[in-house]
Design a protein around this nucleic acid. Structure first.
Lengths: 327, 327
DNA sequence: CTCAAATAGGTAACCGGTTACACATAAGGT
DNA sequence: ACCTTATGTGTAACCGGTTACCTATTTGAG
């Protein structure tokens, strides 16, 4: 391995001078600088981030914790985070928490042990002690915490829009899937939808789920059509759930959207490729990840951050799983 | 931050002794061990991995490089890798290469700067100098290299099966999507399919693509039905492409599988949820990631590894985008 | 009882960077 | 000409661990 000493020797200067060239700090004579740069080139030297990180007590690493990257919504968040971090030269240490407190705790610990400068997390446990104790910035993504910076979508508004649209398009017997009870944005969605349904006096059934995992969604989809065989509208807690419902409906020989309308939430990339393509409430996942990274970078660089809680807009994406609006 | 010195002082011993307790090396008296452990407990100490890594010149970090985690095939690989690594206490530094050589080079560099002990990569450039030069183990995942350990699926066999199935199920005018030319497994798939089609004297068209990205697949799907309006069978290079084709076919009013049969490749989790659900050649993505991690761990621990190239089996998953077999 | 081996634990060098400090020279102001 | 300030560079301490080496005591074999 080529070290700063090798470079110093090769260039005939001290390590301090090489370090000055690398970091563009202090005074370095132009000629000296050129010699050092030449030596760096010739030896193909890149500084060891670990040594740097040890002295500075900070790395260029960010911890990213997501529930499960196998759910197509999260890779989009991850991409957004990564792309922004990449622009500023940060790297990601990544972990899937599987919504388990224990795994999460463990990941956070090793993040810290590796001197990460910040943690972005879609945690299911925002109030947990191991977040409180951290001395580095934490940004919650797609989650809400009262005392921490966070980036999330306007769930309540999303729920309202979904309900409004499904009513306007003629559903009168609506089922609402309720996402995990302890995740705020999911509850906001649910409440927004129920609010509007009640306002319009539309009858609605509630099906609760504990997680966003797909196999559970398939189960719930079956349950839904058994308990409410005459539903003509489903507001799903996310697109994965919506797809499960869609699939089950078609399997039962129902026509979508003629017999049942379905509205998802998220707008994962495949939603538009389904048949019928899925109408859904779009969350700008990539942008959310990007913004979260942006916010994190500001916090790291200790810029005074004006906006610590960023709520992103949602929008209705009309596709084929809802009927045309009645004029 | 609590350091080993604090622990040593608190326990009334030297740092060396604390280190011995931590690493279970050398001789430590039972009573001393207990005192040290108590101190560790009381101070809530966890060793700094960065300092450790600097001295040892090895971390507990593994670099993982994937083309694009937004393609639902890759998160499965990633999960497999992560779950196995997690079992052995390794963490992942993660990057998306976007199939760009430059990005890839850059990521590899920072991986090395962070003292990663190994790199698992689904590179598009397995022969590149920056892989050759690495002194740490590299495992190629879903890729093939002549001189490096690799885990991949049997592409040729997969292609053959796809062709066989589509012929047996009655297609006589088949289009084959050819994946990126420089990715071996994609070419194997393609060649396997063409082989069988030729053997059976079935006419076939070839549509080439340069990447696995979705927008390109949609483009190619359109192109396909324009150039070969009478296709009655499509062998796609992966499920994403297959979905694009499926979608385009339905949009054109064709019936799937009656008018056109479609076979994908990968078996991403959503394939079964499409309508019609997609028949495909399954690659055991999660297992491939898991095995790659396993192989990597063996290489790191310098166990003599008997099997450096692991080829995984593929299988035909019959769903609704192919017709019933003729008796 | 003697001496080698096993047990126990401290001191300090080391990993590869960064930076405080010291020192030397050049430039500029009065 | 003299003092101050700016420029340029080297030495060594430091970051937080690990471990080679040294010393001291205990154990056990002969």
């Amino acid at each position: 391995m080529v070290t700063i000493k090798d470079v110093a020797k090769h260039a005939g200067v001290s390590v301090a001078t090489v370090s000055r060239v690398l970091n563009e700090t202090g005074y370095v004579h132009e000629d000296t600088r050129r010699m050092v740069e030449k030596a760096i080139q010739e030896l193909n030297y890149t500084p060891n981030e670990v040594a740097r990180s040890l002295y500075k007590r900070k790395s260029r690493l960010i911890g990213l914790l997501l529930p499960d990257i196998t759910n197509p919504y999260f890779p989009q968040l991850a991409r957004g985070v990564e792309d922004r971090m990449q622009e500023s030269g940060f790297r990601l240490i990544f972990g899937n928490s599987d919504e388990s407190e224990q795994k999460e705790r463990h990941y956070i610990q090793t993040f810290v042990q590796n001197n990460v400068v910040g943690i972005i997390s879609s945690t299911n446990f925002p109030g947990m002690d191991f977040y409180r104790r951290l001395k580095i910035p934490v940004v919650f993504l797609d989650r809400i915490s009262s005392d921490r910076p966070a980036v999330y979508a306007d769930g309540r508004e999303g729920g309202r829009i979904a309900a409004q649209q499904i009513i306007e398009r003629g559903s009168r017997r609506v089922a609402v899937l309720q996402g995990p009870a302890h995740i705020r944005p999911a509850q906001d969605r649910f409440q927004g939808a129920v609010e509007v349904l009640q306002d319009h006096g539309v009858s609605h059934e509630v099906i609760s789920t504990d997680s966003f995992a797909l196999h559970e969604a398939e189960q719930k989809a079956k349950e839904l059509f058994e308990t409410v065989p005459d539903v003509d509208g489903v507001i799903a807690s996310n697109d994965m759930a919506a797809i499960a419902v869609l699939h089950e409906a078609l399997r039962l020989g129902k026509k979508v959207p003629e017999d049942v309308q379905i509205i998802g939430f998220d707008d994962i990339p495949l939603s538009g490729l389904l048949f019928p393509p899925l109408s859904t409430i779009r969350q700008p996942a990539y942008d959310m990840g990007y913004k979260a990274a942006e916010l994190m970078i500001q916090l790291i660089e200790e810029q005074t951050v004006e906006l610590r809680n960023i709520q992103m807009p949602v929008e209705f994406i009309e596709r084929g799983s809802t009927r045309a609006k009645k004029e």
